[in-house]
């Protein structure tokens, strides 16, 4: 039951790290560049509009975070338990945010 990945420790070498470093720097440049361009908005319904800029910014940030987690933090080669911990973290994070927002979004007093 003890998930032991010590038997064959997967050591990621510097080459991977350098690639990831440049990917992250490129991502940073991209996200800054994207913020200076108006990417428009998606008028879903008359009351709900999704503008693309924050979506793109968050998407880039998330892919950067995923790279860091997978390679710098070695999660790609980690045990299932580590994955479970991460998934639990993301899940609770989203629970707090989304369930709180469920209140704010559906309040009928006009701030949204």
């Amino acid at each position: 039951m003890n998930e032991q990945n010590e038997g064959a420790p997967h050591i990621i070498g510097p080459r991977v790290y350098v690639v990831i470093l440049f990917a992250l720097l490129a991502g940073t440049a991209l996200t800054v560049a994207a913020s200076f361009v108006d990417l428009g908005a998606w008028h879903l319904t008359p009351t709900l509009t999704i503008s693309w800029n924050p979506v793109v910014a968050l998407a880039i940030a998330t892919s950067k975070a995923v790279l860091v987690v997978l390679y710098f933090m070695h999660v790609r080669y980690s045990s299932k338990l580590t994955w479970l911990a991460i998934v639990a973290g993301i899940f609770m994070f989203l629970t707090l945010i989304l369930m709180t927002l469920s209140d704010y979004v559906s309040r009928a007093w006009g701030n949204w």
Binding site: H43, P46, T47, T49, W109, G110, N111
Partner: peptide
């Protein structure tokens, strides 16, 4: 102004007096 619709009720009127630029 932002394209949203709103039904005017007491709460809206109050907000419109105190936070006019929101509405």
């Amino acid at each position: 102004a932002n394209g949203q619709f709103i039904t005017v009720d007491e709460a809206y009127l109050r907000q419109a007096i105190l936070n006019p630029s929101q509405h």
